[in-house]
Design a protein around this nucleic acid. Sequence first.
DNA 1: CGGAAAAAATGACCACGGTCGATTTTTATG
DNA 2: CATAAAAATCGACCGTGGTCATTTTTTCCG
Lengths: 212, 212
Amino acid sequence: MSGLREAKKQETRRAIMQAAMRLFSEKGFEKTSIEELARAAGIGKGTVYGYFPTKSDILHAFCEDELECLRQELTANADQEVPILTQMVRIYMAEFMKITENREFARIFMQQTAFPRDVDLQRHLAHEDNYFALLFPILEKAQERGELRRELELLHITGHFYGLYLLLVSAWFSGRIATEEAEEALTDLFRQALEGLQPQKTLNSITDNGNE
Amino acid sequence: MSGLREAKKQETRRAIMQAAMRLFSEKGFEKTSIEELARAAGIGKGTVYGYFPTKSDILHAFCEDELECLRQELTANADQEVPILTQMVRIYMAEFMKITENREFARIFMQQTAFPRDVDLQRHLAHEDNYFALLFPILEKAQERGELRRELELLHITGHFYGLYLLLVSAWFSGRIATEEAEEALTDLFRQALEGLQPQKTLNSITDNGNE
DNA sequence: CGGAAAAAATGACCACGGTCGATTTTTATG
DNA sequence: CATAAAAATCGACCGTGGTCATTTTTTCCG
């Protein structure tokens, strides 16, 4: 029966991940060897490579799982009537707080996510598309409400917000933005993006400028 | 005389870089071993580590040098009377074209630049500050001309553009944006940033909307 | 110049990530 | 159940990045 084999594989995969996360957290990513990790998971070293192509892929898979879960949760429970600025800040701040829980994890994950190896492209694109599918309805609603310009493509808007999120994380790594300042910084950034960097040519005080 | 020793060190450093770049280009970064590289530079393996802490630091130092040079050139020759959109696109596109000349180099460089290891923080910040010092006058002039809102901090504006640049590079890696489309994409992105994602509350046709 | 001290160069060495052919386990089939 | 094919497991093995004790070179100073 192929179901049994499949179940066992899943179990092994879980065991590897679990052992990996425990050890990576305890001793750090670099200091944990594959051999050690395999022993902790109760398998041989070579077996690990039947499940993950590289060491950092184990970490990446874990982070992706966690974020996937978080995103589902957030976009499902989103109150779509709230201003788009608030919604975007909430979504990306959740992602930020999650990812920055462990600096080393975050670095490896972000490096691979933002600038993926060619081998990972397929998987990467699939995940991204998946994410877009969650974000698009929210942005579309905002367009309908008149909060976002209708002539802009959803992909471009998503990209704009995502770019600013990348900046936030990058600035956090370089120590320019502390964890406590992150929300304010992201809000400023997103507000800037919405209002525009150039002066409004008109009365812009009628908008929800000061609703923070 | 300590001048002689110093000169020799510089010469060795140059030799390492030169050999590294030749080999990395020919055979790829991963496929080039430090031993091999050292031989090509006419020195012993261990000596390399007296000049660069890790293998990828050799590559990173090279890229940083090249970009530093490019930036100096560009910001010096900038025509500060041209619209800020054009100027920013020109600067970041030059950076983009340079960095994407070699995909492997680009990946390693961007990964380390956007999400640097703690060990590299000091050097990283110094370089960034240096870059800001080149960008700020340009943005300041644009503020004075009324092209950028005066109440925004220069650092935030820089960050905004830089974030969108990060997005461009990331999208290039994932194959969402081809090299030939990059300039148009970046222009769109920057224009979006200037005009704002939300609808202008007024007549926005008087601006230089269609000057491309 | 002599020789001690500091700096730099070196390659044997180590630990680890990843590979691979041999071996075991599971599945499919008559 | 027998047996062959397929899948999964394994650890010895390889090449490499990075370290370090030792050696060589340079500097300094009487």
